[in-house]
Amino acid sequence: MTNALNTYGFDGTTGKSNYGGRRTHIIQLLRDTREPLTVSEVAADAGVHINTARFHLESLVDAGLAERRQQPRSTPGRPKVLYVGILPNQTHERAQGFRLLAETLTFSFASMCERPVRTLHEIGMAWGVRLAALGTAENLSERDALNAVIAKLDALWYAPEILVADSRSRLTNLHGERPTELHGYDFAMRDKQRAIVLNHAPFGRTKDTHTVSVGALNAGMINGMLHQFNASIRVDTFFQIYGKDHGVARLLSVDVDMWVPELKVEVLGQ
């Protein structure tokens, strides 16, 4: 059986999510920066030790997602090592053009649907099934299935993490820490109920009607992967934080034979 944590993401990244989204952060930093960066610059921006930054940068070079260069010098001394991302710079006109095209197609399609949330959820599920079928075994334990979903989302730039609700419905990580970005929001969760938090949900800053549609698409993708992995959990509500890139997919244990998709999408913080 293929180990769930040894899968490859659809875009060619390793998809491993056991670094708390740091590697995704560093990939995005390299992607969005025009000039090559030093290890110390990356460490400072990502908030990690310089050795941790070097480890991630070298791993990205090995994966073909970054390139190592030497800083030109006109004076004696050892040149600094610089790193630059291989993926297109998102500030470049061509990259922005692809983003515009994606937004236009998604929002135009949603506006033509009689029930956009239901329709985009179904489309997302179909895509999630396809993603889950790429290089990952289907018969996984629930824990491995959830880890595999996180790995796929991490490879697709969502910077995901699994959080658990405490007795006051506040989301915390395994160390009991609460993300500051989620303070003050009510996700109506029971004690020990889990959620997948997307720290970089696409189109999160769009206007209300489009935000709901994209939330349904994201939730459907997660549910499609969970379905393909035969997991007995599903996203029942997707919360998008208004004006931010953070989305929260609330998970619920279900009877998969009786489960009927009835997704809710809520925009918080308006």
Rank of each mutant, 00 (worst) to 15 (best):
I241R: 02
D154K: 02
V256F: 07
S108D: 13
L140W: 00
N230D: 11
A159S: 11
A151V: 00
K16F: 10
L101R: 15
T104Q: 12
R190S: 10
N173R: 08
R250W: 04
D32F: 01
L120Y: 04
G20M: 05
G124P: 00
L120G: 05
T13K: 04
L134Q: 11
A201Q: 06
G135Y: 02
F98E: 03
L101Q: 12
V256R: 15
L30T: 02
A159C: 12
E35Q: 13
R99Q: 09
Q71A: 13
S59H: 12
A132L: 07
V265L: 08
A137P: 00
R99T: 10
K207R: 15
L153S: 03
V149S: 01
L156G: 04
Y83H: 10
G97F: 05
G269P: 03
R23E: 11
R234A: 09
R68T: 08
I50M: 11
S59R: 15
R73M: 12
V256D: 12
V164K: 08
R94W: 09
H49A: 13
R234K: 13
P179A: 01
F229Q: 00
D166E: 09
F239H: 08
G204S: 07
N223Y: 03
A249W: 00
R78F: 06
A53Y: 01
T14K: 09
A148W: 00
L226T: 00
A159W: 03
T211E: 14
H56E: 11
A219M: 09
I233W: 06
R68D: 05
E138K: 11
A159T: 09
T52S: 08
P179G: 02
Q270C: 08
L131R: 04
I86R: 08
D257E: 11
A201Y: 03
G269E: 07
K207D: 15
Q28W: 13
D32P: 01
A219W: 04
Q96V: 06
